[in-house]
Design a protein around this nucleic acid. Sequence first.
DNA 1: AAACTATACTGAACCCGGTTCACCTTAAGG
DNA 2: CCTTAAGGTGAACCGGGTTCAGTATAGTTT
Lengths: 193, 193
Amino acid sequence: MSSSRPLRADARRNRDALLAAARDAFLAGEAEAHIEDIARRAGVAVGTLYRHFETREALVEEVYRQEVAELCAAPPALLEQHAPDEALRRFLLLLVEHAAIGKGMAAALASIMATDSPVFVDARAQMAACLDRLLAAGSGAGTIRADVDGKTLLRAMGGVCNLRATEGWREDAERITALLFDGLRCRADITRA
Amino acid sequence: MSSSRPLRADARRNRDALLAAARDAFLAGEAEAHIEDIARRAGVAVGTLYRHFETREALVEEVYRQEVAELCAAPPALLEQHAPDEALRRFLLLLVEHAAIGKGMAAALASIMATDSPVFVDARAQMAACLDRLLAAGSGAGTIRADVDGKTLLRAMGGVCNLRATEGWREDAERITALLFDGLRCRADITRA
DNA sequence: AAACTATACTGAACCCGGTTCACCTTAAGG
DNA sequence: CCTTAAGGTGAACCGGGTTCAGTATAGTTT
């Protein structure tokens, strides 16, 4: 769809402004974030927003997609600089960090999470792939059990990323990560499901 | 508030019908569940619904509250019939079961989860208390590590209960539960945080 | 550079669904 | 029965996402 024609200069500018405005709004914890507000922040009219994004959800999705892409770029560097299991641990923490982008995004995402929206399916697939890579490295080194795949681990981490809202969730998240991590290491003897 | 006056017979009947209708709708996976539909199913007009429940969310909350109460009645029986660690494992699985009540409820809950609604805070507290009890029994028996509390474990399980939607989540949920459980047992040597 | 046109922008109007409220109905006590 | 306070009704209201007819402009052609 985006390959049809290179987008006019002003269109590209507005589109970017809208994405930026939306990201700002979500990160600021403004779950409500009326589209009119987002449009205003971007300095355009609502109609323009709808020219670029099919629906409000589509906008949220796009912001989310970018967020995920950024996160999923991490593994290679991590594996280069750390032992496999340590790399995995760090990625899990990054996942938590990623979740810290604020209530707003979380609330906005809630609907997408529930849905089987292709965007979210994609995101899950990407993240799971990242985890698979890290898990494989770990089980190859014999420090991580081999009967848990990325998809499963991602789900396990999902809770941490969702049930935030209350204060103190941060240290809790790290404790849970450690708990899962122990579960992954303590039975490193398992080499096959 | 409910202690002001015993509720007229028809009122009680309608209130129950509404709760039942709402529960049915959510369990049927109908995330949308327009208020008017719920009212119709219960055989009353929307106004009646609003007489009993401040708002749509209030209705969802009440359904949820009942669900939680039911779940939290389980521990005593479990501890009577099983060893502490086994009792904990079973409760964790019950938590998963509890989550299985369907997409609808999940979607409906999403908003509450995000909120710091007293109902949800309460629910968390209750569930955490259940887990604390089971964890204490386990660490007392020396089969469960003692540096994880109910609140934390509940959060860890939260993911399982949220990120459902895709098929196959069920067995995945059990795998995650096992993973956490291993993490809890493998370091049973930890007796104090 | 003037004209041309496909592309993009605007914002008032529309629609949907939760919520309200003025008015009607009925359970329950006397 | 009669009274009346509790309960029920549903049309109207309202906020916010979405649409679209009208207008402006980037990029191209002559």
